[in-house]
Simulated assay, not measured.
Amino acid sequence: MTQIDASNRKRSSGRLMILGFLSPSLAILLFMVAYPIFSLVYYSFFNFSALRPAAGMKPVGLGNYEFLLGDPELWERFVFTGEFVALCVSAQMLIGIFIGYQLQKNFRGRDLLFTALMLPMMMSPVVVGFLWRYMFNSEWGVINYLLTVIGLGKVDWLGQTTAALFAAAAADTWMWTPFIVLLATAAFRGIPETIYEAAEVDGASPAYTFFRITLPMSAPVLFIALILRLIDSFKQYDLFFALTGGGPGSSTETVSFAVAKTAFSYFYTGEASALAVVLLVIIIGLSMILVRHLNKMGERY
């Protein structure tokens, strides 16, 4: 019994030591994450404006949520956000996997090329937005210049909703495809060479090797990349702020753009908080579904 008590005391002291080391980080995490989320949910139940704090906070219950979910313009923003996410994430995954598969091979200048490909990811989204805004300028932008060189007409890229959607997707794809390339290359290079050698001995074609060996064995890492890009794309704001400003009109406003506009242009703090909560719930729900599939994928491979 004495040895058991000593072992229990030692285990308890070890847990207390671990808790002592973790407590500062946990306190910071609670303050930086839990408190803002709690405040966001709390404000969403009030008619409140940060510009007029003296007016007080009027409880409205679920009134903000009912107003927002009944607003047809909000659903248009959700549809536009979904179209943007589907377009840019699909392009990034396809291009990133293709480039990553090529970069796993050994060739001269590969490291230099890999470093150059990572540069767009290091830039600020606002800088990328303004850069591509100049490139998509309808009069003297380089994109329209190239179109005229090959005999096509100019396109008002930022003055039409559909064209602006493709312009934003192109800018986001240029910036974040290197992230997929980085993870895909690491996943592909982590596959043992002996598996490829065995497949080559069995006479497997390159296509069979890619779809039956490379993709399945790197699927968990690629799925993580997909989850991260979906979450980040769904809350995209700064790129649209610099590239289109939400125009023409408000047709290229994402949900995150609508949150910022409601909060900092109209100063409807309660409505902005409710919209942010809706967006947060959607992102969390989508993440939980994808993580569940990721866990099943991990068990399979």
Rank of each mutant, 00 (worst) to 15 (best):
M123L: 14
Y43T: 14
I97H: 11
R133S: 01
N8A: 15
M122H: 05
S124L: 12
Y42D: 07
N47P: 00
A50P: 00
V128A: 08
M57C: 00
M57A: 10
G82V: 12
M1P: 07
Y301P: 04
V255G: 02
I195F: 13
W176Q: 12
L182Y: 14
L30S: 14
Y301W: 13
V221A: 15
N144W: 05
F80S: 10
M122R: 05
Y268Q: 15
S25I: 09
V85R: 13
N8P: 00
S233P: 05
Y196W: 04
L294N: 04
V149Y: 05
F114Q: 02
G153V: 07
F179E: 04
Y43N: 13
L22D: 05
R77T: 01
Q104T: 07
I99Y: 12
G63W: 07
L182S: 12
L226Y: 14
P53G: 00
R212V: 00
I283Y: 02
S90T: 15
G129K: 10
G56Q: 10
E139G: 06
A34H: 10
S23Y: 07
D156I: 03
F241K: 14
F46L: 12
F84I: 13
L51F: 12
V155L: 15
G245D: 06
A86L: 13
I28A: 14
R292C: 04
I143A: 08
G151P: 06
I18S: 08
G61L: 08
A184M: 03
F21D: 02
D232V: 05
Y145C: 02
H293G: 11
E76P: 01
T214K: 07
A204C: 07
S49Q: 05
A219G: 00
R9A: 15
A171G: 01
I191Y: 13
V155D: 10
D5N: 10
M217I: 04
I28M: 13
L226G: 05
L29I: 11
A207S: 09
T2P: 01
E200H: 15
R9W: 09
L117S: 01
L158M: 08
S49A: 05
Y42A: 06
V127E: 05
L228R: 01
A116Y: 04
L87S: 03
I195K: 10
I143N: 12
F166Q: 04
V255A: 09
T262R: 12
Y208D: 04
V126H: 08
M1Y: 03
P24T: 01
A86G: 11
F107V: 06
P248N: 08
I282K: 03
I282P: 02
P216N: 08
G141Q: 03
F136Q: 02
F179P: 01
A219R: 14
L290H: 11
C88I: 04
A204S: 08
L280K: 03
T161N: 10
N137M: 05
Q102T: 11
L290T: 10
L239K: 06
